[in-house]
Design a protein around this nucleic acid. Structure first.
Lengths: 227, 227
DNA sequence: GTAACCAATTTTGGCGCCAATTTCTATACC
DNA sequence: GGTATAGAAATTGGCGCCAAAATTGGTTAC
C-alpha cells in the first residue's frame, strides 16, 4: 500500500477537497472493499497527507454516504443495502431521463463526434483493457454525455448519485455479455442524440440503468480489515 | 459490524451534525443574511460550541453549498444566482412530481388527516402568526407530505435541495395573496391525495413549485458584515 | 485634502500532543 | 482445553497554541 501514485489531475485545488475526491475514486474503483475499516494512519501514509486532512476528507465522504462513521471506532466503507441501491437507481432513472431532452437539444456535431470516440474507446477496451480501464472509459463516456445537459444542478446531483450505487468495477459487469450490451447501448444512445430523438434517448437511458439492476443479485460478504 | 446498524436516522453525527443542522436552519430562516460573512468567533459564542465543531459544521455547510469558503478569508452565506435557483426549482419539480405516485399510493387515512391538520395550521397562521411561524408550518406540511413517498433517497435529496433555493421567509412570500394561494394549494393537494388522484397531485405540485419562481424577481444586494 | 503606505489587531487555519476508548494479548482460573 | 479477565498496545478524537494572512486604523508624504 506504499506508494503507487498514478499521475493525478494537476488541478491545484484545496488539498482536502482533492483528497476526498481521490479517496472517493479509490472507493469507487474498489481499492477499498465494502465494509472495510479505513484507519487514519494507513490513509495518512497512502495519500501522504496530514492527519487533519484525512479526517476532514473522511467527514466529507461520510456526508456523501460513501463511508460510515462510528464514534470511537472509525470510518468504514459504506455497504449499500439492496433497497438503497434500488432507490438510488430509481432516482438516477428519473433524473437522467429528465435530462435527455436538453442533452439532445444541446449536442453539437462536435459533441456527437466526441461521444462516438468515447463509446468506441469503451468498445475497444472490452478486448484489450482491464476492468479498471473499462470502468474509467465508461465514466468518461457518461461524463461527456451528462455534461451536455443544461441543468448543472441536475448534473451535479446525478454525478454524486453515481458514486453511491454498488459500482466497484468487479461487481458492476459480471459477464462479457453484459459489457457488450452496455457498449451497444452507448452507441445507440449516441445515434439517438445524432438523430435528435429525445424519446429514444430516454428509453435507452432507462434500459441502460435498469440493466445494472439485474447484475447485483448477490451480496458481497467480504468483511476485510484495515490492514 | 455486519448487522450492527441501529435505526439510522438521516442525520449522521451527534454534536457536529446537529450544529450544522442548526446553522442550516438559521441560514434558511434568514438569521444570517445572504452574502454575510460568518466569523468563527461569533459562531462559537452564538452556538456555545468549540472552535473545531464550528469549523467542521462550516465545512459541511460548504459541501452542501449553503455557505461558500474562501481560503484565508472565511465562510460566507451563499448567494444563489438566478440561474442556479431556477435549476434547483427544475430538479425539485422533476423529483417531487415523480414522488407523487407513491405518495398517493402510500397515504393512509391517518396520514391524510394529519396533512389536513398541518394544512389548517398553516392557514390559521396566515392571520395570527409571524412569517417565521408560517415558514415552519410550511416546512412541517411538506415534511409530512414528502415522508409519504416510498423512495427514501429521493426524499433525502429533495430535502437537501429545499435548502438551496432562496428561501428566507421574508423573501419567499412577498404578498398575502401569495401566501393564501399557497395555503389553498396545500388543501387541494391533500384532497388530491384523498381522492387517489396522482395526476392531480402532480399538477398541483408543479404549480406549487413554479409559483415561487414568480416571487423572486429582485436580487438582494445586501452585503452585511459578520457582527 | 487626498492617497498611499505601514503598523497593529483580528481572524483563519494548521499542527502536535494527550486523554478516552477500543482492540489485542497474555495469563490465570474453571 | 476453553473461557474470562486484566493489562498493554493501538486508534480515535478533542483541545489549545501559534504562525500566516487579511483587515483595520493611523500616519505620513505629496
Amino acid at each position: 500500500m506504499r506508494g503507487h501514485l498514478r499521475p493525478m489531475s494537476v488541478k491545484a485545488d484545496s488539498a482536502t477537497g482533492n483528497l476526498a475526491d481521490r479517496m472517493a475514486r479509490d472507493i469507487q474503483a474498489g481499492v477499498f472493499a465494502p465494509g472495510m475499516w479505513l484507519k487514519q494512519i494507513d490513509l495518512e501514509t497512502r495519500y501522504e497527507a496530514k492527519r487533519m486532512e484525512v479526517r476532514r476528507a473522511l467527514d466529507q465522504l461520510a456526508l456523501k454516504r460513501l463511508v460510515r462513521h462510528v464514534p470511537n471506532r472509525g470510518y468504514h466503507v459504506h455497504v449499500p443495502d439492496d433497497r438503497q441501491a434500488e432507490e438510488v437507481r430509481e432516482v438516477r432513472l428519473i433524473l437522467e431521463t429528465a435530462a435527455a431532452g436538453s442533452i439532445v437539444a444541446n449536442a453539437t456535431a462536435a459533441d456527437i463526434a466526441a461521444l462516438r470516440v468515447l463509446a468506441q474507446r469503451f468498445a475497444d477496451l472490452i478486448l484489450e483493457g482491464t476492468l479498471l480501464d473499462l470502468y474509467e472509459a465508461n465514466i468518461a463516456f457518461h461524463a461527456k454525455l451528462l455534461a451536455l445537459g443544461s441543468n448543472r444542478e441536475l448534473i451535479n446531483i446525478l454525478w454524486e448519485l453515481r458514486g453511491r450505487g454498488p459500482s466497484a468495477p468487479v461487481t458492476q459487469w459480471k459477464t462479457r455479455a453484459r459489457i457488450e450490451q452496455s457498449s451497444r447501448e452507448h452507441f445507440r444512445m449516441v445515434e439517438a442524440i445524432a438523430a435528435g430523438d429525445a424519446a429514444g434517448l430516454r428509453l435507452l437511458t432507462a434500459d441502460h440503468i435498469l440493466q445494472t439492476a439485474l447484475q447485483t443479485e448477490e451480496r458481497p460478504p467480504a468483511q476485510g480489515d484495515g490492514a
